[in-house]
Design a binder for these strands. Sequence first.
DNA 1: ACGCCATTATTAAACGCTTAAGAGGGCGAC
DNA 2: GTCGCCCTCTTAAGCGTTTAATAATGGCGT
Lengths: 343, 343
Amino acid sequence: MGDDAVKRPTIAEIAARAGVSIGAVSYALNGRPGVSAKTRKLILDIADEIGWRPNAAARSLSGSRAHSVGLVIARPADTLGVEPFFMRFIAGLERELSGRRTALLLQVVEDHRAAIEAMRLCWAERRVDGMVVTDLWTDDARLPVLAELRIPAVLVGRPRAGTDLPAVWTDDAAAAVAAVDYLVALGHRRIARVAGLPALEHTQVRVAAFRRAVAGHGLGEPRVLETDYTWEEGVRATRTLLSGRDRPTAITYDNDVMATAALNVAQEMGIAVPGELSIVAGDDSQLCVMVRPALTALSWDIQAYGVHTARVLMDRIDGRSPGSLQVATATLAVRSSTAAPPA
Amino acid sequence: MGDDAVKRPTIAEIAARAGVSIGAVSYALNGRPGVSAKTRKLILDIADEIGWRPNAAARSLSGSRAHSVGLVIARPADTLGVEPFFMRFIAGLERELSGRRTALLLQVVEDHRAAIEAMRLCWAERRVDGMVVTDLWTDDARLPVLAELRIPAVLVGRPRAGTDLPAVWTDDAAAAVAAVDYLVALGHRRIARVAGLPALEHTQVRVAAFRRAVAGHGLGEPRVLETDYTWEEGVRATRTLLSGRDRPTAITYDNDVMATAALNVAQEMGIAVPGELSIVAGDDSQLCVMVRPALTALSWDIQAYGVHTARVLMDRIDGRSPGSLQVATATLAVRSSTAAPPA
DNA sequence: ACGCCATTATTAAACGCTTAAGAGGGCGAC
DNA sequence: GTCGCCCTCTTAAGCGTTTAATAATGGCGT
């Protein structure tokens, strides 16, 4: 290509055309006082005409703001494909960020070690002003690092003691309880749960709430199996639950991939859904209406979650030290995978 | 927060500690000649010790390289959720980019107009060195803009006349033909197709190949319905095809979401799959093995596709004017949704 | 001993922007 | 008439790098 890159206009060019100094141009373009209305208009018009945009690097270097935020997703790549959460969440983030002229730097890594490395690097290079932290673990190695480096961040999950980082969260416990209440109201007495990664905090929260809810209805200690969210483990856990004696008449799952897996296992074992087994999925993606029977699921607005997350992060970056924000609790979208248990 | 940001080390600090000029430090850190082995080691050691990383903004400003590339995804947000392509593709991009110290700037917008706006802006701001262009349309408004601004880019799709941009592509035509050949070999004579967005180039390519293949087997003009890839349109198209007289005994779909929809429609209409109807899905995501019967699908390595795309883009950015690259053709992963037609 | 060259190091300009500090002019108050 | 003030604009330093140009050093051939 050996080509001369197209030269992009600078404020110096605007200054020359307007016959003023670059200082004046800068003030005018940033809407600061010190420039007469007439000159300001002249400058803005010229800028508009030649299509000037501030050079991000120069602005960062001078103003010490990168005007972008980072999102490091720490998951094995193949798990990401079917997981509908992130794309919707990212769409939400974007929606808010683009209005603020802030870019989103995305990184996909395998594990927390790599995530920490990635965070350290892009912070050290000053590529980002802050970070979005998802998939929080109960004991999360990333948090000390964020604290050490004093990186502005927002936690996608419950607020935490021991850090002053704001969190954006939804009441997982209430949602888990709502699912149990509904199943009990239908007449179920043996309800089990297939949970996600035990290391994840919201897994713990949901499991605890689930246990409390079941106990609260006087139903004894429920069975809870832990998994890594994958299809394979969903299959395994469901088989285990359905193979024992006193098999549950209802199972709640921590995501919709595993709930779908359950559908297949039930079919395989000749167990009717919802006739003999009710299934509740943990996320409500399109997947839930793509299978037969359509899955009853805990439904919430992931994109809005992304919007709020971005907003809180930007507040934090701007030094407005926002509090944590609770978004709407998931509601149960009842479809065809739940019914009264067999008499 | 009003807090003093943690000061990150600069080459000036290294220079001071090493007792040399910042110029020497820069040469040493960039592995250029003009520094003695001894001094070089001293400098590198100090840099390592204090954890120095180049300030990305300063480097960009000086070197006129942003060290990041952009990906603008132009799709309605709700379509993105279930579409497994992007996450895997992005994981592939990342895999290659992170090794090259290059960041990925992600943007999610609604349509091409917004995409062009986003591209223009982040190019004008010099935030990126190049762009990845996906979902190419037959007549794509983004291409003239890329040409006008001389933005280094890589096309994710067929190479094109009228532009010198390199492309990374897979032989969609061959894959479409393979699917038809397989169905014909099974004994099918009435094969239909539910295609994706007609505006997309690969839709056209696949449809044309499909028609040719069917004609080549002497089977007359096949029915082809166009859709927007969504579940809803998959349902609609499938109903239409199965409701007419002389209904097809096999249908190929342009993605797996619609193929899954077809499964439901068939069940609804009491048509056995694969007994009375064979179904071939266009992408092979985990979705295909999540439904019953598991879907026969065209399978290919999307993550590798991402890796190659990033590699070609970086070559282009580095001025090595790479040619277009063809990656492995999709192969048919035969599962349980295809069989011989009813006698 | 001298000039010449290669090697190693320094200097300073440049990248495009922000911003504190200063300069000039007009105007009202005394 | 003069002082002081406000408003508008300019100057110049600084952000952290890269890099061309320059300077200092030492070794070698003659």
